[in-house]
Design a protein around this nucleic acid. Sequence first.
DNA 1: CACCAGGCAAGCC
DNA 2: GGCTTGCATGGT
Length: 293
Amino acid sequence: MEIIIKENNLLLKNVKDFNLLHIFECGQCFRFNKLDDSSYIGVAKGKVLRISQKDDTVILYDTTESDFYNIWYDFFDFSRDYTLIKNRLDVDPIMHEAIKYGDGIRILNQDLWEMIVSFIISSSNNIPRIKGIIERFSMEFGRPIKYQGETFYAFPTPDELYGLTREDLSVIRAGYRDKYIIDAINKFYEKNLTCDILFKMPTPEAKKALMTILGVGNKVSDCILLFGMNRADSFPIDVWIKRIIEYCYFDNKEQTINTISQFAQNKFSTLGGYAQQYLFFYARENKIGTVNE
DNA sequence: CACCAGGCAAGCC
DNA sequence: GGCTTGCATGGT
């Protein structure tokens, strides 16, 4: 990868295993949106980023070299060799197809606190509405950031949120999940649970700790581990993953979550998280296992 | 009008 | 322990 500074923009040339559309449409990130020119804009790590791609050239707009190295290099997981991951996961015709279809997916390293709240909101919900709730949440309680004459909002921190009541939260229209968000705020504010504490724990222990938060169960904790803590040994099983695994590997017969979890563990081991993203994207975009499939 | 959406907690047995 | 049910809201 070659880095070129051009006016206020940063050009990355010869970028491998990177597809902006797949990265932002595979359901891992709720705060980036496509513009008319098919670039993406969003807020992460307290900054606004606009980014575009043409073939193997990626442009980060209005970005300094130091922000690239300090923030976006890690955010886009550029240190990881996805060619190696794809080769290791290419173990059967189904995975081969899913990897080919979702080529260029990367698992972003997003803020842990943001992932906790975002995936609490995600439960029994659909992606457009999840994005709406998170956007209102940030707009109401987050710090404003000016960018090109427009105002964006950072994801609010536990300190900024402490003391909010369910009534205060009603403006974001999260439904019954508001009490779960408040429980997460309290646990973080009281330092019973912090990002530092969680990062120091091995995956099974971190999962247990996360599940002490109300509204964080088996699936939500796996998403938090995968998207907020870089724990690719977790394999979140939602309705889509359950459906595609049953459809492709179990003759479309219903299986328990435990069976599917064991199956993924045996098949993908420590790369389960990456396998999950390819399968999720493939299943959703092709409506695998649904009536219209 | 039902039914569903990146599930979960609480209440049963 | 496992199984069932209610849950806010908005889209189809």
